[in-house]
Write a protein that binds this DNA or RNA. Structure first.
Lengths: 206, 206
DNA sequence: CACCTATGATTACACCGTAAACATGAGGTT
DNA sequence: AACCTCATGTTTACGGTGTAATCATAGGTG
């Protein structure tokens, strides 16, 4: 299969288009990066963006939800990378790494709200998620959970990790939906700072 | 305008249909209560549910987003009522009232995920929200913020309220999107219990 | 009664997701 | 080299949606 000089990494599915599946995912990401909602992410619009016929995506995805899931999977991989990078920002295994992860989580959502909304409940019913999507989201969560595990005793680590996740996810959701003030929503840095502040905040005393 | 015996409260807009505007909002709510996503909430489908022509809603709403916003406004009013009722469940001004509000918040989202998703970023761009919708969401938040204000000194009350909101909102979002385990998503009681547990959880020590 | 306006119905158009039939070109076989 | 096969992409078609424009009617007002 390799007598020709074509790069084998592009040969897979590279009959007419170089690699249409990846091109479609990239087109979908570009739509979201241009300020598009998940509702703007249509099958025809994505195909148009990839410079291909409207029905071409059906050769690579069974339906629209599968294309959206593939885009969301890339989103989770990017989120995982962003969390891991933020975690490595500090030096030791201290809480600053966790705060940095929280700030990165919110900054990610604020910088790409369309992608973030697609990743979380952006259309596909739970239970019908492809395995790759589930694995990608679990991998992202694992980065946060691992940091929490280094900070708390083993028993309550799971609950503490879930609590931290819910907190930063709630901040991110409220910010991108414009429920916490316009200034924060516009500026990803301000949103990240808010996340760090709330994460550091002591619970209600009593 | 009131020589007839018709109830004035129904006279407004009640030429042909009793009160089509309210009927459309009720039809939209019923669609969401029947397990419909916000995407299932269409203009034509809502009109069909209300037993009226497809274009009739345009006499009462300028476009689809306005109808969705009206439905979301009712959702926030219901959420506000649920939070207020949960707050009154206990007796004193203690933290149990706050925990009850958190559990009620998550239970609301879990019981009506479609409505919850519509209320928060369900289509309309932030900034284009009708004033009534903003007021309804602010009124719901005010119930939670008021309880927090009775528990913490004035300076940090705002941040503490926002932190509590983000935490319960994050839990609710993750649960209805199926990111925290199927069992919790199915059972609203289990979801509410999870909210109470995480709210009670002490922060990460250090 | 005649009239006016609010309300709802019809029709039409562009867009979308999906299915079916068609066209094309790369690769292996002879 | 000639041919066959099948994966890939295109075209056409259908039902559904949101929206604009036009028509029809019900209810109160003079």
């Amino acid at each position: 299969m390799s007598t020709s000089t074509i790069d084998p990494s592009l040969t897979k599915g590279g009959y007419h288009h170089g690699d249409l599946r990846e091109a479609l995912v990239a087109a979908g990401l570009s739509i979201l990066e241009d300020g598009g909602d998940p509702t703007s992410l249509g099958l025809r619009e994505t195909a148009r963006r990839a410079g291909v016929s409207a029905m071409a995506p059906y050769r690579h995805f069974p339906d629209k939800d599968a294309l959206l899931a593939a885009v969301a999977t890339v989103g989770f991989e990017r989120l995982r990378a962003a969390l891991a990078a933020a975690d490595q920002g500090g030096e030791g295994a201290d809480r600053e790494a966790l705060y940095a992860q929280g700030a990165a989580y919110v900054a990610f959502a604020c910088a790409q709200p369309g992608l973030f909304r697609l990743m979380f409940g952006g259309g596909t019913r739970p239970g019908a998620r492809p395995q790759a999507l589930c694995e990608a989201s679990a991998a992202a969560y694992a980065v946060l959970a691992a940091r929490v595990a280094t900070l708390v005793p083993g028993a309550s680590a799971a609950d503490e990790a879930l609590r931290s996740w819910a907190l930063v996810h709630g901040i991110a959701s409220l910010v991108i939906d414009g429920l916490v003030g316009e200034a924060v929503r516009i500026d990803p840095q301000a949103a990240a700072a808010l996340a760090g502040r709330l994460l550091r905040l002591e619970p209600i005393p009593g």
